[in-house]
Design a protein around this nucleic acid. Structure first.
Length: 500
DNA sequence: TGAAATGTTGGGGCG
DNA sequence: ACGCCCCAACATTTC
């Protein structure tokens, strides 16, 4: 009888297109293992991530049980736990899918070496990316620093392999190690149960991911290009948490979108499919950047931002976190985040821009809040996207590109449905004033049941002043005077009368 | 994957 | 009828 093989599940909580699972199943009877590693040096999962993880593990456990394989849950330092499980099961091989985060790369390398010493074969596979990050290079052999050439380079590469089917049959190892009980890990919040409503929005697990993809392909893909920036329309795929946890892989999405675009011909214009695949490539680019610049999560990619003086503004940060900045589109986004663990991409950009540029609060603080509250919180994507907004990242939005939250609201939530949904206190305010309630006559607001400062806050900063302040702060980067604001050389402008 | 300031143009009111 | 001015509307530049 062949020796058992361990499939070590990590962020690949699926049976389909899971090369490590396929290889382990090929190698011997299975031990299916998940390790919760909360030791020092490992960034702890945020609260929303823990909720999702609990649900997703339960779903995976169920899928595996249908194939008569138990999911073994263990807690502790991954290297030690894996060593113990190898000893307990007398497994001869371990398979996992690669994670490209700097900590995971170091850890996995050490584990591989340690197992090799004991004569155990350890094999890693790619389940998370369309292309291995080290295979995509400029002509000069350097990693790409700009998205568009990166995207063009991807299109020149051979198509990513077709996804593997789920193994039809699995054989479980006779000797199964002991397992923790999922409930004992206490991953979900109890008091207060802020995740109580999450189940209305999400179905974690492989089946939920597949369903989400199918609904998107059948419905919104055709409109994706036109509607993707409209948070009121729910025109995006909402696959991000499923992708983050590996309940579905990018290869599955890539091929499904292409097949759908071809099958439905005119109904799905090439533009729509292309525009969606481009977003998948942005995900790829984030992971690629993290692989090549491992300090991306903590340090500005553009070193000159290291001396930028961010403001320490506890009150401003708290107002932002709670969705009480007084700018409805910003606040609606942060409330959506709190209530659902997710925020529409357009609104993420607006809300992030507001924190970094209007409040001049360091992007790292926003990154940490998103890390704790997003069900799709992902080290690479979170860091790359915040740095993009802040202007310190690769191919970043220039610092002087400052979103006007009123105009953004009017443009992308034209009827105000999104704001009204997440800010019920403003539900009766007419659209004319909805995105800028401080400009409304107080009698009109009163008729809508709103007193500013009581039911909904006054703006925490004036947009025009905040914009000037941000542009002035930007000068300190350009002129290279460390830590000291530089007098503007351009002529002074009249202060805005926007709020008078 | 902007916004605001500045510049240009052309139609219409009006002396 | 003509030129002047005003000012949307659009284009360009700057941050």
């Amino acid at each position: 009888m062949p020796a058992p093989a361990i499939i070590w599940f990590r962020q690949d909580l699926r049976l389909e297109d899971n090369p490590a699972l396929a290889a382990a199943a090929e190698a011997g009877p299975l031990v299916a293992l998940y390790i919760l590693d909360e030791t020092r040096g490992v960034r702890p999962w945020g609260g929303a991530s823990r909720w999702w993880l609990a649900e997703s593990l339960a779903a995976l456990e169920k899928e595996l049980r249908r194939k008569a394989v138990p999911l073994i849950l263990r807690r502790g330092p991954a290297a030690r736990v894996l060593g113990e499980v190898v000893a307990e099961t007398r497994a001869k091989s371990v398979h996992w899918n690669r994670n490209y985060e700097p900590y995971a790369i170091r850890r996995d390398k050490a584990i591989k070496a340690e197992l090799a010493k004991r004569g155990i074969e350890a094999t890693s596979h790619n389940a998370a990316l369309l292309f291995e990050p080290w295979t995509v290079k400029t002509q000069a052999g350097e990693p790409f620093k700009v998205f568009t050439p990166f995207w063009r380079a991807l299109q020149g590469l051979p198509e990513p392999p077709r996804p593997l089917p789920a193994p039809r049959k699995l054989e479980k190892a006779y000797r199964q190690p002991r397992s923790d009980r999922l409930a004992d890990w206490a991953l979900k919040p109890v008091k207060p149960d802020w995740a109580a409503g999450f189940g209305n929005f999400w179905q974690p697990g492989e089946a939920g991911a597949r369903q989400r993809l199918e609904e998107f392909l059948a419905g919104h893909l055709a409109l994706y290009h036109e509607m993707r920036d409209r948070p009121d329309l729910s025109a995006t795929a909402r696959l991000s948490p499923h992708l983050h946890w590996g309940e579905i892989g990018p290869r599955q999405i890539w091929h499904a979108v292409k097949a759908q675009a071809i099958a439905s011909g005119d109904l799905v214009p090439p533009r729509a499919a292309e525009s969606f695949l481009r977003e998948l490539a942005w995900r790829e680019f984030s992971h690629y950047l993290l692989f090549h610049w491992p300090r991306l999560p903590s340090e500005p990619w553009k070193p000159e931002f290291g001396r930028f003086l961010w403001r320490n503004d506890k009150a401003g940060f708290a107002a932002w976190q709670r969705g009480r900045t007084g700018y409805p589109i910003v606040d609606a986004g942060l409330r959506e985040l709190w209530d659902t663990g997710w925020m529409h991409n357009r609104v993420r950009m607006i809300a992030a821009s507001f924190l970094v540029k209007h409040l001049l609060i360091a992007w790292q603080e926003g990154e940490a809040w998103f890390w704790d509250t997003l069900v799709d919180a992902d080290l690479a994507q979170n860091a790359a996207s915040w740095q993009w907004v802040a202007g310190s990242g690769a191919d970043a939005s220039p610092f002087f590109r400052i979103f006007n939250p009123v105009l953004q609201g009017e443009k992308f939530d034209p009827q105000g449905a999104y704001v009204r949904r997440w800010l019920p206190e403003l539900a009766q305010v007419p659209i004319e004033f909805l995105h800028k309630p401080w400009t409304a006559p107080p009698t009109l607001l009163a008729a809508a049941g709103v007193v500013l400062g009581r039911d909904y806050p006054e703006p925490v900063v004036d947009h025009a002043l905040a914009r000037e302040r941000a542009l002035a702060a930007f000068e300190t980067l350009r002129q290279g005077v460390a830590g000291r604001p530089v007098r503007r050389t351009s002529r002074a402008r009249e202060p805005s009368k926007a709020r008078q």
